[in-house]
Amino acid sequence: MNDATPKRLFLTGGGGMVGRNVQAHPAASEWDIHAPTRAELDLTHPQAVATYIADLQPDVIIHAAGRVGGIHANMANPVAFLDDNTLMGRNVIMGARQAGVRKLINLGSTCMYPREAENPLREEMILTAPLEPTNEGYALAKILAMRLCQYIRQEDPDALYKTLIPCNLYGLYDSFDPQRSHLLPAIIHKVHQARETGDQTVEIWGDGTARREFMFAGDLADAIWNAVRDIDEIPDLMNIGLGHDYSINDYYSAVAQVIGWQGDFDHDLSKPTGMKQKLCSVARQTDWGWSAPTTLRDGIEQTYKHYLEISGS
């Protein structure tokens, strides 16, 4: 970038894991990034968002904000998950259109795929079958935002409004709270506690054979910045992932090796194993020429170091 003045970027969800990794990426230093907090800008208020974007006149928008939660939160609050996420996506995308912003990266979710979709999950499968009921509201809101971007491009091909669908994520700025954390940070916390207390066994729900695709969040940030640079070239809709997965047992073993815990795993077969697989197709991503650079071990090592820093261990 040769301009003396950095280009202006509006980032929603700047306080979340994805948003913080986007801002920590080396490419961020080349941009004038505006990432207002929820207190500074309520994304569910259409006029406030429209005014903010019109006043800021960003060169690019990255929409990474959302109301997120686990299965229990989604099931207990389906109205809020549908309504809040619909409003956020609609307000940011339409605010961008009204302000004449030509470049926007919208982040979707793999929950947009049908519940019974065949693996690997290909982008054209979206809207071909029923969704997973436990997070349907969130998924519908994400699909609406994706469709809105596509419709805007249908009416105005010069509006580069593109949607990226990341696979599962872990990494720096993740939540390690056992009540809220996802798989890998939960494993890190559990195995670390076992090492600290001298426990010789760690429990795994089910038989551990279910397979999951988890990408280091710093790699998603790298993909996002590359997409910003190549926004003319990327497809309107594209998965961002590894293209391969690991079993739950593999993740536990990898974390144990990094942490240095040498106990045994105890499988509680009375607990559910979960979906057998959830793997994204990376055919479009491969054609674009990008792949995730961080190995599983390196990603876990960086995440564990971050865990120790924030926990004071």
Rank of each mutant, 00 (worst) to 15 (best):
Y173K: 12
I310F: 06
T5Q: 12
F216V: 07
E136V: 06
I310E: 08
R147C: 04
A283N: 08
Q302Y: 08
V49G: 01
G100S: 11
A99T: 08
D268N: 14
K276W: 03
L160C: 11
V202H: 01
T197R: 10
R115G: 07
S181V: 12
T201M: 12
T5Y: 08
G14D: 04
G15W: 05
P120T: 14
L164H: 04
V49A: 06
T209H: 10
P178G: 12
M238A: 08
Q193S: 11
F216H: 14
H267C: 11
S313V: 14
T5P: 00
E155D: 14
L131Y: 08
T86D: 02
L56W: 04
D3H: 13
W205L: 07
R153E: 09
R20D: 03
I240Q: 03
L104K: 00
A254T: 11
D42W: 05
F10W: 03
T44K: 15
N21M: 03
L308R: 15
G312C: 11
R8T: 15
Y173S: 11
L164I: 14
P178C: 15
N77L: 12
N119K: 06
D232S: 12
G16R: 07
N77Y: 12
I53Y: 00
I300M: 03
E155A: 15
E196C: 08
S175I: 15
G260P: 01
A210M: 05
R122V: 13
R115F: 03
D232N: 15
I234N: 03
S311C: 10
E132G: 07
P26K: 15
L164Q: 08
A80V: 14
I126Y: 06
A24D: 08
N21S: 13
R38D: 06
L121E: 00
H63D: 05
Y251Q: 00
L184W: 00
